[in-house]
Simulated assay, not measured.
Amino acid sequence: MATIEVYSSDRCPYCVKAKALLDRKGVEYKEINVTDDDEARVALVKKANGVRTVPQIFIDENHVGGCDDLYELDRKGELDPMIGL
């Protein structure tokens, strides 16, 4: 099974949507909430090569992108193999 990290924040509808897709897939993921956490936000920006928006999703340390990117991978049939389904 893949290691999945989701950087998110409170009150973010795209974060909710991305996590809902992962929940439907039945996979575990680590959520890193950057709301009011400056250190986590700095880590996100560094890890995502300057991207500041949430959600940002990483699968096995590979930067997938945001919510739309995750859904696009699923639409193309590429997400399941990435997450080990």
Rank of each mutant, 00 (worst) to 15 (best):
P81A: 06
K25W: 01
P55L: 09
V54N: 02
E5M: 06
E78C: 06
A18T: 01
D10G: 02
R75Q: 15
H63E: 15
A48P: 01
M1T: 14
L21Y: 09
A18Y: 05
Y14V: 03
I4V: 15
D74R: 04
L79G: 10
D38I: 01
D80F: 13
T3M: 10
T53R: 06
D37G: 00
L22K: 02
D68I: 12
T35F: 01
F58D: 07
D80E: 15
K19P: 02
E31L: 02
K46C: 02
D36E: 11
N49V: 13
A2Q: 08
K17M: 11
G50H: 12
V16N: 05
G26N: 09
K47Q: 12
I57N: 10
K17C: 01
K17A: 13
F58E: 07
V6F: 06
V16Q: 08
I57H: 10
S9C: 03
A43R: 06
G66L: 08
A43K: 06
L70P: 07
L85P: 03
D60K: 14
A18F: 04
F58K: 07
L22E: 03
V54C: 04
H63G: 14
R52Y: 05
Y7T: 00
R75C: 08
V34W: 00
Y71G: 13
G26P: 09
E28Q: 15
D74I: 06
T53F: 05
V6D: 05
L44N: 01
N62I: 13
E78K: 15
K76W: 08
R41H: 10
V51Y: 10
L85I: 13
Y71I: 12
D37H: 01
T53I: 07
C15A: 04
A48D: 01
L21G: 09
T35R: 00
I59G: 14
K30V: 11
Y29W: 04
E31T: 02
I4C: 08
L79S: 09
E61Y: 11
N49M: 14
V54S: 02
L22F: 04
P13A: 04
P55M: 08
K17D: 09
A48R: 02
L70V: 09
A43C: 01
K17N: 11
V64W: 14
E31K: 02
V54L: 04
E78R: 14
Y71P: 13
G26H: 09
K46F: 03
L85N: 12
A48W: 03
F58V: 06
K25E: 12
P13K: 04
K25H: 05
L85V: 12
V45F: 04
E39I: 02
